[in-house]
Write a protein that binds this DNA or RNA. Structure first.
Lengths: 168, 168
DNA sequence: TTAAACTTTCAATAATTACTGAAAGTTTAA
DNA sequence: TTAAACTTTCAGTAATTATTGAAAGTTTAA
């Protein structure tokens, strides 16, 4: 396969995976494009490569910066802004985990805690089932939360080393 | 808080979390409703509780069965079908992990393997960056795949026990 | 058989989400 | 200052995704 075709395929696959996981397809594609670009790119280049509008490129890049996945760069003597993506896969995974935890897991944990404390008649099957489901999910979510916390603090090798110990 | 209000809040929160993770909001809500229902429910009851149409209820329930999260039940002497959700949180987590792996991770792993094998000029920075990014992501994805495999085979206590060892 | 009770399908429509492009805003160099 | 070079905003529109509801299909009991 051609390098150009291979890049294209990577960008498409990444976009599809992103959209299946609730991440805007274009955002995932812009990220993918930057991940396979050795040099930082300008808005113009991104617009052209992915055939997207200036407005879309601008907002998407802003979002990616907000996710901590992309940074602005300036080149000496130039007005234009350049965009560069960290290529360290472990950093990317941690950054995504960190943001999704903050944006999505934390709010739901708060609600689960609240719902776990709802009082009711333990003889009532409606209450019993509600209470069991909510407290069980709350426990699971807290486990996930703790595991993410460990992952965020960890070095890659240590983290996967620990995971691998599970197999032995 | 009222039990009824609490259920409502749980259904909404679950629907929101689902939609943020690429799962149809209604599907997540129907699942949530069944999770807090001690008895199996009919299509009619689900339609009424969530104010959704018959067609939507029917297709959503079919999807949930396809995900292995809900099962049909029949009551003796009755024509109607009843729907029941497994309430074991660990089973639910494993089932979701299993399906998403099959539907989303496996296809992307296949593409990453293919792209990892693309040949090129190691002196070309374009190729070098592409190759590094793709092979690194491929490695990470394979680690996730293996971890999921372990999780799918594991008992809950064993799995979380192993995770907790990471903290010590 | 048949008709009532129930389930499934899917074309039409609604709701949501994403994108465009032009205008407004900002920065820089002369 | 000013005007060129660049970035940001956002109302309007397009694309995608989800839902409805009525018709078609199926099952069961008499």
């Amino acid at each position: 396969m051609e390098l150009t075709a291979a890049k294209q395929k990577f960008i498409e696959a990444w976009g599809k995976l992103g959209s299946e996981w609730g991440i805007n397809r274009t955002m995932a594609q812009v990220h993918a494009l930057l991940l396979v670009s050795p040099e930082a790119l300008t808005t113009e280049e991104i617009m052209k490569d992915l055939s997207i509008s200036r407005g879309n490129a601008n907002m998407t890049l802003r979002d990616l910066i907000g996710w901590g996945l992309v940074e602005k760069q300036h080149k000496a003597g130039e007005r234009k802004e350049y965009f560069y993506a960290d290529k360290d896969t472990w950093n990317i995974a941690r950054q995504v985990a960190k943001e999704r935890r903050k944006r999505e897991l934390d709010p739901v944990l708060k609600i689960l805690d609240e719902l776990s404390n709802v009082q009711g008649d333990v003889k009532d099957p409606e209450f019993k089932t509600f209470n069991k489901t909510v407290t069980d999910i709350n426990k699971l979510a807290k486990n996930v939360d703790k595991t993410l916390d460990t992952m965020l603090k960890a070095e890659e090798s240590w983290f996967w080393g620990s995971i691998f110990k599970m197999f032995k």
